[in-house]
Design a protein around this nucleic acid. Structure first.
Lengths: 258, 258
DNA sequence: AACGCAATTCTCATATCATGCAAAAAGGCC
DNA sequence: GGCCTTTTTGCATGATATGAGAATTGCGTT
């Protein structure tokens, strides 16, 4: 039943009951019943015979935003970064086993950024994603490699586990990583991880520049700026919102790194 | 099962499995099963023994934003309004039988606005809500009154149906309405409806001012500005995105008004 | 490296509830 | 008011969700 929600895409945000029924092979009454239930929960909305995603989605997104300990400190810092260097700034969050954009601060250039809030981003392409993956625990990296080795190879991150591991460690050593045109061809991204108390990545901060702007930029300075900001976010997260997670029994202290 | 999502609130965005189980009186396996299903759909996320709302929420919110024909023209106009008069601007949308904030453009004053994107707003309090309700079809107004007469009375919109109807018609005649401290006590809101092709309200645009700013403002000018902008949104919506709704058979042409 | 505790999943018999069909009801349109 | 499409209802049937308990896993401890 929850699969019904997946039928709604940016390209097709409005459906009819019949669309849903034929898509799933439901009988008409069953289709209506499922839809009615989703409507009751507010996840769908029926208006004039058509179906759209409902108001609850927007409300729940608000809860997500409020509950995201990364977001508040990030917004302020992202804005400050934007003001200082004029770049667009993206905040990526690792949620479960997906990475999505959770905030986008526009810079002074009118960049085309395909990955504003709510867009899932590829796991292994783009500076932001790589900055996250590189700072995941080894066990998690291993699991990711096992599940997505061909995708990883396609992204040029190594054809076997040692090569992938080495690529990740290189990023880890740098503390930041740069991608040129990996997501949007005209853009360059410079990303640094946001770490939780255990030194594990929970998200990343990305500076996005146009090619001309990047060409004349001081690369080392950029790296320092994004690293510093991401570390400030990490710190603010830990101090400001400590203890909101119940049930965290086993959190081994990592080495931190940075 | 969808009720599980309702347990997550801004005040309590992180729960444990046990919270859910005890709240609903499930057995432990059933609780795990429901949660697993919601996780599979991405609506929940499990990390370190805790539950949070999942990435799919954010993705779906993106679909809502993309699919909202009001949003794109509104953002540009809201920004323009903000630049011209320095006020905060809110965009409210009628989704099903709820009104929620769908966009918030910050002005130059650091206002405290409790109703940023995703907040459900009261149906009968605040300029934005009243601007919407006043421009709903009579049948819908009647249904609303039947269901919420005490709430309507409490908001000072009339103790019986004729009085409520008269209050709504007064707003309709004006084309705009002003509320003083109805939502956030320090703020004044000036709202105007956004109408679909049938002349029915689908949302509203609200200018929000601090009391000092409002005290020295030209009220008639404010009203004109917000009305004009909302009409531009209405127009942009109809022309820009015509025909994306399938299954709209019966759309009687209303008189438009404004 | 093995133990012990808690969290999580599995097995399976039972009862529940979702399903589809046919039919009825509800709106909207002429 | 009659006719169309859309939406809901009643009901018998069969799939499947459920809870009790046991088995398993994961993780910290000894």
């Amino acid at each position: 039943m929850l699969g019904i929600l997946d039928l709604f895409t940016p390209a097709r945000p409005v459906l009819t009951v019949e669309d849903v029924v034929t898509e799933f092979g439901y009988s008409l009454p069953t289709g209506y019943r499922h839809i009615a239930e989703l409507c009751r929960a507010g996840l769908l909305s029926r208006v004039a015979g058509s179906l759209t995603l409902g108001p609850r989605i927007v409300e729940l997104d608000y809860v997500v935003r409020q509950g995201d300990p990364m977001l508040e400190p990030s917004q302020a810092l992202a804005r400050e970064l934007r003001d200082r260097c004029g770049c667009d700034t993206l905040l990526l969050t690792l949620l479960g086993d997906r990475i999505i954009t959770t905030h986008h601060e526009r810079g002074s250039d009118p960049l085309t950024i395909s990955y504003s809030r709510g867009r899932p981003v590829p796991m292994f392409r783009g500076a932001g994603s790589k900055a996250i993956v590189a700072f995941l625990p080894l066990a998690k990296q291993r699991r990711l490699f096992a599940g997505s080795s061909q995708e990883i190879a396609a992204a040029g991150l190594g054809h076997d586990w040692p090569a992938f591991r080495a690529a990740m460690q290189a990023i880890r050593r740098e503390g930041t990583t740069t991608s040129i045109g990996e997501l949007d061809p005209p853009n360059i991204g410079v990303g640094a991880p946001i770490l939780d108390g255990a030194g594990m990545a929970v998200g990343s901060l990305v500076l996005v520049l146009s090619r001309p702007r990047y060409a004349i930029a001081d690369k080392a300075l950029l790296a320092r700026m994004v690293t510093q900001a991401s570390q400030q976010i990490s710190t603010a997260m830990r101090t400001g919102q400590a203890g909101i997670l119940p049930g965290l029994r086993g959190m081994k202290q990592g080495r931190g790194n940075g």
